[in-house]
Amino acid sequence: MIDVVLNIVLLLFLLTMAVSILFIRHLMAMAMLFGLYSLLTAALFLVLDAPDVAFTEAAVGTGISTVLMLATLAITGIHKEKRPKIHLPALLLCTLVGGLLVVISLDLPPLGDEQSPALQGVAKHYLEKGKEETGVPNVVTAVLASYRGFDTLGEVAVIFTGGVCVLMLLGHWRQKPSVKVKNKIRITSR
């Protein structure tokens, strides 16, 4: 029972955070709230029996992401957002999509339901045979590294791609005067 209460309380906090992030105009404060928001999410993951995800969220979401945001703020030096206007079409769209989602959610198995097909499918096999087949007691690790190892390879590729992109965008490239660019074109035309 305490789970459920904790869960609800955390979710309410989370909602408050999200609303504040949306409305706060001081960007530095927003970054702080953003960090807190991530931390709350991590806590929620923990409550929902997902420690691995919680660790990752705490490290990557709360840590790296917030640091990156602060760094961006430090470089751009802009700390205040202009006064936003109410965007009516967006509001309408959100109500629509949200309504649709609520309707769908009524058809979903309730939280923690035993009969959910998700628990019957592949997951059952992982829980029952995982240790036997991979030798790792942590099923999450077993699936991550073995059954779905290729996804993890893809994940590495994503990080690599992101790194290359950031490097391309922010690396300390020598600034070239435009004359030189013209020279280069001449070389190619030969």
Binding site: F150, G154, A157, V158, T161, V164, C165, M168, L169
Partner: peptide, 18 residues
């Protein structure tokens, strides 16, 4: 897996477009 590769190609294109 499709989603993961979708993100790889998208990320690469964001960089390329920029």
């Amino acid at each position: 897996n499709l989603f993961v590769f979708l993100e790889i190609s998208s990320l690469a294109t964001y960089g390329l477009v920029s």
